[in-house]
């Protein structure tokens, strides 16, 4: 999947390399180890030679690299378990809602996001 012209692999690589410039803990080997994958596999992911990994690995990568989890999952062509459950509970309604919102500007979509209610304190 591509976003802003960047593939999943190149996005992953640019995030990791930016961190690695100042922190050796973000070498291919060390990051792979922390995310429970092998360095060659991570390298192939970065070169888009294999399909994006599981939701679990995407979440670990997002946490390690400081990327938003939903963005990382979307780039990896996945939908998080909680979102999938929400859609499956009311598939027709949510499919319609997402289609109707796909071209709506961000600020208008944000008006639909539920606020944290403030009360009397």
């Amino acid at each position: 999947m591509k976003q802003g012209g960047q593939s999943f692999g190149s996005h992953l690589r640019s995030l990791r390399e930016a961190k690695a410039r100042t922190d050796p803990a973000f070498s291919l080997r060390q990051l792979a180890q922390r995310c429970g994958v092998t360095p060659p596999y991570l390298s192939r992911l970065e070169r888009d030679e294999v399909a994006p990994p599981s939701e679990e690995v995407l979440r670990l990568l997002a946490a390690e690299l400081g990327e938003d989890t939903d963005v990382m999952l979307a780039l990896g062509g996945k939908i998080s378990t909680d979102l999938r459950a929400a859609i499956l509970a009311r598939p027709k309604l949510f499919a319609e809602l997402i289609r109707s919102l796909k071209d709506v500007p961000d600020h208008a979509v944000l008006r639909l996001v539920r606020d944290v209610a403030d009360g009397d304190w």
Binding site: V116, A117, D118, G119, D120, W121
Partner: peptide, 19 residues
């Protein structure tokens, strides 16, 4: 979690809103 989702919370907690 949103406070307003849980009716079992005490009334004073629900009045304050929040999370």
């Amino acid at each position: 979690r949103h406070v307003e989702d849980y009716a079992a919370l005490p009334a004073h907690t629900r009045r304050r809103g929040g999370v």
